[in-house]
């Protein structure tokens, strides 16, 4: 299928992995490159990914994550084919996809709500998380209706639809989460345990097809978003200052030496 350039509305779209040739054709910008990752969320169909005509991912497997790569801002042509197929018979094709500068982006090859292959760009929130916290992002990229995401049995994200995301910064640790059809208790994706490491963002993609009974999840992790504690308060006694007053000892010693020294000088004068 051919994707309209509405993708650029999200200010995104880039390519997985660009070969040197592709990089050379990208327009030069003063701003920094973007970090671009690619998530494969179409079950049962390995693919090759071409960027600006160069094969950059070979036999890319479903439920895996490629990247991140540094891509200069610019426009990229992306073609996704069955392994070995020519670019003239694409599964997904995006022309002139815009990659902005200085962003962190994930391109997700997935199914639309009605089951057609597509490529959706998401801008990743890589702002720092508070000390002790972790970021959880859930993206609905499955051929399925609206869903609720539950953690510990309670809905945390409600009425999430394809291709949208919900996110929250929560206490780091292990949570058990499942996905139900929105407003129901009908489980779409059974409960799974996931460990949200402090200072990271865990992005969980719901992928596959409800009709095809291939619903599942793919996870992407972004590290290095940690903050420091506000400070290290570790003393309220003030005992350090009541300790041996070295300064006074030194002063007294110096005075003593000075006195003795003066005495010596006096005695010498007397002798002289």
């Amino acid at each position: 299928m051919r994707i309209r350039r509405t993708l650029a509305g999200l200010a995104v779209v880039a390519a997985a992995t660009v070969g040197a040739g592709a990089l050379a054709t990208a327009p030069a910008h003063a701003a920094g490159p973007s970090k671009v990752s690619v998530v494969h969320g179409i079950p049962g169909q390995p693919v090759d990914v071409y960027v600006n005509g160069a094969k950059t991912l070979n036999n890319f497997q479903p439920s895996t994550v490629a990247g991140p790569l540094d891509l200069p801002a610019g426009k990229y042509d992306i073609v996704i084919v069955k392994p070995g197929d020519p670019v003239s018979s694409p599964i997904i094709k995006v022309d002139q996809a815009a990659v902005p500068a200085d962003a962190n982006i994930t391109l997700v090859a997935h199914l639309t709500a009605d089951g057609k292959p597509t490529l959706t760009p998401f801008v990743n929130d890589v702002s720092k998380v508070a000390a002790g916290k972790a970021r959880l992002v859930v993206r609905h990229t499955a051929a399925a209706p609206a869903v609720d995401v539950r953690a510990g049995g309670q809905p945390v994200f409600k009425n999430l639809t394809n291709p949208n995301e919900a996110k929250a910064d929560i206490a780091a640790g292990t949570v058990s989460a499942d996905v139900v059809l929105a407003g129901t208790t009908t489980v779409a994706i059974p409960a799974a345990s996931l460990t949200l490491a402090e200072g990271t963002s865990t992005i969980v993609y719901a992928v596959g097809s409800a009709e095809g009974k291939t619903l599942g999840v793919v996870a992407q992790k972004i590290e290095g978003l940690h903050s420091t504690p506000g400070g290290v308060p570790s003393g309220t006694g003030g005992l350090l200052e009541q300790r041996t007053p070295w300064g006074w000892y030194a002063l007294a010693t110096a005075a003593l030496i000075a006195a003795v020294g003066a005495g010596v000088v006096l005695r010498r004068r007397v002798r002289a």
């Binding site: 992995t17 950059t56 991912l57 895996t64 994550v65 490629a66 996931l194 460990t195 993609y205």
Partner: peptide, 13 residues
């Protein structure tokens, strides 16, 4: 080359 990781849910290290 381009690093590729599995997309399994993260478990505690």
């Amino acid at each position: 080359g381009v690093p590729v990781q599995g997309g399994a849910l993260p478990s505690g290290a």
